[in-house]
Simulated assay, not measured.
Amino acid sequence: MTAAPDAPITQDVLTLPRKPDEGGPINLVGLTRDALREALIAAGTPDKQAKMRAGQIWQWIYQKGVRDFDAMTNLAKPYRALLAEHFTIAVPEIVRREVSTDGTRKYLLRIAGGHEVEAVYIPEEGRGTLCVSSQVGCTLTCSFCHTGTQRLVRNLTAGEIVGQIMVARDDLGEWVPSGTGSDAAPRLLSNIVLMGMGEPLYNFENVRDAMKIAMDGEGISLSRRRITLSTSGVVPEIHRTAAEIGCLLAVSFHATTDEVRDRLVPINKRWNIAALLDALRDYPKASNSERITFEYVMLKGVNDSDDDARRLVKLIEGIPAKINLIPFNEWPGAPYERSSGNRIRAFADIIYKAGYASPIRTPRGEDIMAACGQLKSDTERARKSKRQIEAEARL
């Protein structure tokens, strides 16, 4: 898409700027279109030009992956200098990057304040999925999830969430289109799942704004049907997700009785299975999405019996759904074991015969600790060991 032609810049724009933030330059990554326009006006862009300027800058950042204002060649040089004075285009920093033998890429990313989060890119035939984080740590303490062992530090900003997508596209070299129409190659990063560190619906506004940026047709341009938000069951925000984001929904379900789910997913003590299912029944219609994905991690002797499979089918009756069966990705010190292949297949067969899709997820990236939170913990352990070695050397 060709950006709009440059318009003349009047002298007062350059000599009488109104700084939007006296505390330092504003990061443009993560601002909504309206917020970007307002920030440009506050920096001195005339109101009549602001919408056009916002559109031009938006395309440079999200369509072309440009981080340097000097590279925005359809803007006059004085205006580029004005932008550089007031703004920055910053994304998370890669601290550690691991590539699995199966092509999975895992990134440990540093954000503002020195905090670290993870993102995982999973390539598949004709598509590629990026799993992004929404919080530093997590407050939910799900007993099978490694992130649950890490304390919640803070929510990610919209810029830090969409920045994970931009970092992955940098690494994949996917900013320049490879063709159009029948000549276009499949997108390497074609899908986003909000299944990384944190509970997305406890950071709703930032997640919403980041996903709207990802869905914008003049930038990253992912369909809302290419985005899946996974929640552990924050019931009050589920309808809001349908109304304000409209993406596909996945639910970390993992149990068929409140007794077991209370232990696996403690948020169930606040909103139990019945309350959660009530909220889910209207979601496909409200969001115009096809069906709910029920995520079900297979834990040996905990939730993997034939009776569990039959109860699951009964519970979701009437909800357009598929059940993703997830072999437990074991981590050091985990209190559970992965169900056997035969047990998982028997469980899947009961669900399939009841009329529901029941794909068994193939474990990916186990050689690079791709389970959520593992790479961060491993890095922290290594740093601690290094500090201990250095301390001992000083004695």
Rank of each mutant, 00 (worst) to 15 (best):
A3P: 12
A7C: 10
I9P: 00
L14W: 08
E22C: 02
G24L: 08
T32M: 07
G44L: 01
P46L: 10
M72H: 08
R80K: 11
E85G: 12
F87G: 01
F87M: 05
T88L: 10
T101N: 15
R105S: 11
L108G: 06
P123C: 13
E124D: 14
S133H: 06
V136P: 06
G137K: 11
L140I: 13
F144I: 09
H146S: 14
G148C: 05
L156N: 10
A158R: 03
I161P: 01
V167Y: 01
R169I: 12
R169H: 09
G173Y: 00
G173K: 07
L188Y: 00
L188C: 06
M197N: 09
I213Y: 00
M215Y: 06
G233E: 05
V235C: 10
P236G: 09
A243P: 00
G246W: 01
L248N: 15
L249N: 05
V251Q: 03
T256K: 03
N268P: 03
A274K: 14
L280S: 03
A286N: 11
R291P: 03
T293D: 02
F294W: 03
E295A: 13
L299E: 06
L312E: 02
L312D: 00
I319A: 12
I344E: 08
I351E: 02
G355R: 10
A357D: 13
P359W: 05
G365Q: 06
G365K: 09
A370K: 04
L375F: 06
S377A: 15
T379W: 14
E380G: 02
R383W: 14
R387F: 13
I389P: 01
E392D: 13
R394C: 12
L395C: 07
